[in-house]
Amino acid sequence: MALNVLFAAHDGLWADYKDHLPVAFANAGLDVDLSRDHAPADVDYIVFAPHPALTDFTPFTRTKGVLSLWAGVETIVTNETLTQPLARMVNPGLTQGMVEWVTGHVLRHHLGMDRHIHTQDGTWDQTVPPLAPERKVCVLGLGALGAACAEAIAALGFDVSGWSRSQKSIAGVTCFAGDAGMTDALKDAEIVVLLLPNTADTENALNAETLALLAKGAFIVNPGRGPLIDDDALLAALDSGQVAHATLDVFRVEPLPADHPYWAHPRVTVTPHIAAETRPETAAAVIAANIKRCEAGEPMHNLVDRGAGY
């Protein structure tokens, strides 16, 4: 009997996935009836992205798992009607995109590229950047995306530290954990990359106190979540020179309002939440593989810890 898989996401995502998912299911040897209209009581699995049409999971009594199309699950993890196993999205396309974006902006700030891009005024400025081993980079958040970015930056020779809630071990990266560990990781950091999950514990992780730990003239790179930063504290640090520049891809309100101070600030780069995108082809393969695992009686990969929030 075919498995009934409900695609519960907005119209634009259906257009992206309606062809890729059947191919992935077939490649995984799964007999699947993929639809946007299955009756809740008949659904075996839900492929999900947050949208108003599905907020109550109570009727899905047969459902064995909910597979998120997003890496972040903060908008669904607190839903009390969701009692089924929830898997967040981790896939090679998403990871590769994040590594490329983060590495590009770390190198941009390390090499001082903006000086030459924006100052073509005839000044012969031979300011030479330090070599990578002389530059301290801190990655806050060492999950799948953070660990991949930390490894890539370390492979270029940077002095990389990282912080996570629980202790991690990553080749070439000095790993810290716990409250005291965050202080140690941030102390004198010259470039900080934010890839923490969005939880009550991580909100305003960068605030006036933690920004003061950084080296004078540090750079902030945030492709993680907007609430990780106290916006007022960051603006004050930019104006004082404690932070030289902030490259921000995510915000508390998106799209970022046109009158937000970040748009006009000379030391802020705004990118419109494009650091990493879930690629339908690779994401479809991950979803199919997770359903196959569940059908074989194995736990799905990347299951969300409801208590931790990610």
Rank of each mutant, 00 (worst) to 15 (best):
M1V: 10
D16C: 09
V23P: 00
A28D: 09
G29Q: 10
D33C: 11
S35L: 03
R36L: 07
A39R: 14
P40C: 09
V47I: 15
V47L: 12
A49E: 08
T61L: 04
G65E: 07
L69K: 01
W70D: 09
W70K: 05
V77P: 02
V77D: 02
V77A: 04
T78V: 00
T83S: 02
Q84H: 13
P85D: 03
P85Y: 04
N91F: 01
T95S: 08
W101V: 01
T103Q: 13
T103N: 10
L107E: 02
L107V: 15
L111C: 03
I117N: 05
P129N: 13
P130K: 12
V137I: 14
G143T: 10
A147P: 01
A147W: 01
A148T: 05
A148M: 09
A155P: 07
A155F: 04
S169C: 03
A171P: 00
F176W: 14
D188Y: 07
D188A: 11
A189G: 06
L195P: 09
A200W: 00
E203D: 08
N204M: 00
E209L: 06
T210H: 12
L214A: 06
D232C: 00
D232T: 14
G241R: 06
A244V: 05
E254H: 11
P255G: 03
P257N: 10
P261W: 12
R279M: 13
E281T: 13
I291V: 14
A296M: 06
